[in-house]
Simulated scan of single mutants.
Amino acid sequence: MSPRVTMGIAIFLVLAAGMTWLAVTDWRADSALDSRGVVAEARLVEIRDGGKRHDLYVVEFTSADGSAHRSALWQPPAEPRPAVGDVLRVVYDPEDPTLVRDAR
């Protein structure tokens, strides 16, 4: 087998492993939030415009144990678009409060 073919196969395998890891990580996060997620009100402190695909919302909230947390979540562009300072309902994982998603 030529070095080019070997390199192509190696690149393919690395990309396939990376895509699998991302899919499993996303599935585990959704599973954790579905099974033990807690709803909280979060203040939107920053919006990073992602164009037509997704915006990054940075939110701050207080967990059930009274701890303050700051986390980020990707959101599809919404109409009307929320503004910095708005309150959003989020679901967070009490075992890992950085894991957050929109509660809508």
Rank of each mutant, 00 (worst) to 15 (best):
residue 2 S to Y: 01
residue 3 P to R: 15
residue 5 V to W: 09
residue 6 T to R: 15
residue 7 M to W: 05
residue 9 I to A: 14
residue 11 I to D: 14
residue 11 I to K: 09
residue 12 F to P: 00
residue 12 F to D: 07
residue 13 L to C: 14
residue 13 L to R: 10
residue 16 A to L: 14
residue 16 A to R: 07
residue 17 A to R: 03
residue 17 A to L: 12
residue 18 G to R: 11
residue 18 G to L: 13
residue 19 M to S: 04
residue 20 T to A: 14
residue 21 W to K: 13
residue 22 L to T: 06
residue 24 V to D: 12
residue 24 V to S: 10
residue 27 W to A: 13
residue 27 W to Y: 14
residue 28 R to E: 12
residue 30 D to A: 13
residue 31 S to T: 09
residue 33 L to A: 03
residue 34 D to Q: 11
residue 36 R to S: 00
residue 36 R to K: 07
residue 37 G to A: 04
residue 37 G to P: 01
residue 38 V to I: 10
residue 39 V to A: 13
residue 40 A to E: 04
residue 41 E to S: 15
residue 41 E to N: 10
residue 42 A to R: 01
residue 42 A to Q: 01
residue 42 A to K: 01
residue 44 L to Y: 02
residue 45 V to L: 04
residue 45 V to A: 13
residue 50 G to E: 03
residue 53 R to G: 10
residue 53 R to S: 07
residue 54 H to Q: 13
residue 54 H to R: 14
residue 54 H to S: 12
residue 56 L to S: 10
residue 56 L to K: 05
residue 56 L to R: 11
residue 61 F to R: 00
residue 61 F to Y: 12
residue 62 T to E: 15
residue 62 T to Y: 05
residue 62 T to W: 06
residue 63 S to Y: 01
residue 63 S to G: 15
residue 63 S to L: 04
residue 64 A to P: 00
residue 65 D to L: 05
residue 68 A to L: 15
residue 70 R to M: 12
residue 71 S to P: 06
residue 73 L to Q: 01
residue 76 P to Y: 04
residue 76 P to M: 14
residue 76 P to N: 09
residue 79 E to A: 14
residue 80 P to A: 04
residue 80 P to R: 08
residue 81 R to H: 09
residue 81 R to Q: 15
residue 82 P to W: 08
residue 82 P to R: 07
residue 82 P to G: 01
residue 82 P to C: 00
residue 84 V to W: 03
residue 85 G to D: 08
residue 87 V to Y: 03
residue 87 V to A: 11
residue 91 V to C: 09
residue 91 V to Y: 02
residue 92 Y to I: 08
residue 92 Y to W: 08
residue 93 D to V: 02
residue 96 D to M: 03
residue 97 P to E: 04
residue 98 T to N: 07
residue 98 T to K: 06
residue 99 L to S: 07
residue 101 R to P: 01
residue 101 R to L: 08
residue 102 D to H: 05
residue 104 R to S: 14
